[in-house]
Design a protein around this nucleic acid. Structure first.
Lengths: 222, 222
DNA sequence: CGCCGCCTCGAATGAGCGTTTGAATCGCGA
DNA sequence: TCGCGATTCAAACGCTCATTCGAGGCGGCG
């Protein structure tokens, strides 16, 4: 966890936005460390060391360690939900208001899967969100439990497309589909690699997306 | 987290086995607290207070807090795997060596779902296992990554029943099916309650089992 | 009765934690 | 160049944590 810090001052050069470089470094380091090791295992000292900034920066810029976690969570989920909603909206337009199940599921699955791509800038964000969802307490848990507006779009789209399926059934199947995504943690992939003796790899994102949509679509149309 | 302890000496009376009462109390309290609040959030003091035993008991009986976690994890996963293997074995016998997909999936899903029943003695164990799987580090992570012997039984059964489906595909779909179970955390159920406005409740275990098997079976037969 | 393992106890240890503090430094408009 | 608000810094604070320690209790056996 304790690692030597390199280049404390120059912010790696890749990022164009320059205002509040310290804040951005903290956000990036914290997201990465939280995603890999969880919230309670990572100390403020770990974060500031990795970011190459002073220990007090976290409390100065974010107020507390909890607030920092929530801030990252808020940003990433908003980003993810926006992308999903955009894809759902596009699919709705493409299909005259009633997108097929396959298009709805693709809008749900594609964003987190594409983010998981090897060289995607949001590579760790999906892992972060999954961890924050399951480990997060307090404010995060409250949001998870009460804010269902994002999911409702998808539930409503499915209800419109599958009018003969009882709503209760649709909610359950949506729950199952979400479980399929949340299981995409590094550790689970590792187990899959071992079990399949290397045959099943998640590196081909589009193939995995097709697989997941196939599976879930069949479940919804059962 | 800090709670007044009641009846420190008499072990609640319900449990017949009396040897090493302290050890058993610690195991029960730790499992419950870990399941509800996670590993890092729960202190040894919380556990011993809830169990009504001395602070030093954990280190005396188990060596360390980490070892305690691993011990509970080992016991519960062994128990769960045994139950699953038993059901798979029975289904295999019932169907002359080639159980249908539905029977295989039922053997996989039924044990954790039945444990989740309101008045089942293993009610918190499923939540504990799910949390330990996602939060556990060190020894637990190693076991998760390398010990696939239990899953292999199910993968092999599925391969035998679906000889035309590429093995790689079977491994992926098994991965998806496992995700459906791991998503059965209290917080996710809460969200489902809100989304469905109370329509979807997990209290009817057998109905939920049928739903899950229906969904996953369709995915496998797609 | 007296000894001896096993177990329990209260107390202490030292490390690590999140957070606070007040001074130093920076960047920039006047 | 000066002044000032925003930021960064090293240091410390107070607290909680897992773990350890040595003394004491207890039960069974000689």
């Amino acid at each position: 966890m304790t690692e030597a810090r390199l280049s404390p001052q120059p912010p790696e050069g890749e990022n164009a936005e320059r205002e509040a470089a310290t804040k951005a470094q903290v956000l990036a380091a914290a997201e990465r460390l939280f995603a890999l090791n969880g919230f309670r295992s990572v100390s403020v000292r770990d974060i500031t060391a990795e970011a190459g900034v002073n220990l007090a920066s976290v409390n100065y810029h974010f107020g507390s360690k909890d607030a920092l976690l929530f801030e990252i969570f808020r940003r990433r989920t908003a980003e993810l939900n926006r992308e999903r909603a955009r894809m759902l909206h596009e699919a709705t337009g493409r299909h005259g208001g009633k997108p097929p199940v396959r298009a709805i599921l693709t809008a749900l699955f594609a964003p987190p899967l594409r983010w998981s791509n090897q060289d995607h800038p949001r590579r760790v964000s999906v892992q972060f969100i999954i961890r924050a969802r399951s480990e997060g307490a307090g404010a995060i848990r409250d949001v998870l439990r009460t804010d269902v507006s994002h999911l409702r779009r998808f539930a409503d789209a499915l209800i419109g497309t599958l009018p003969d399926l009882p709503r209760e059934e649709i909610y359950w199947r949506l729950h199952f589909a979400l479980g399929m995504i949340h299981n995409n943690r590094f550790a689970e992939f590792d187990r899959l690699h071992v079990l399949s003796e290397g045959a099943a790899r998640e590196s081909d994102t589009e193939a995995l997306l097709t697989r997941m949509v196939d599976f879930a679509e069949a479940g919804f149309l059962a």
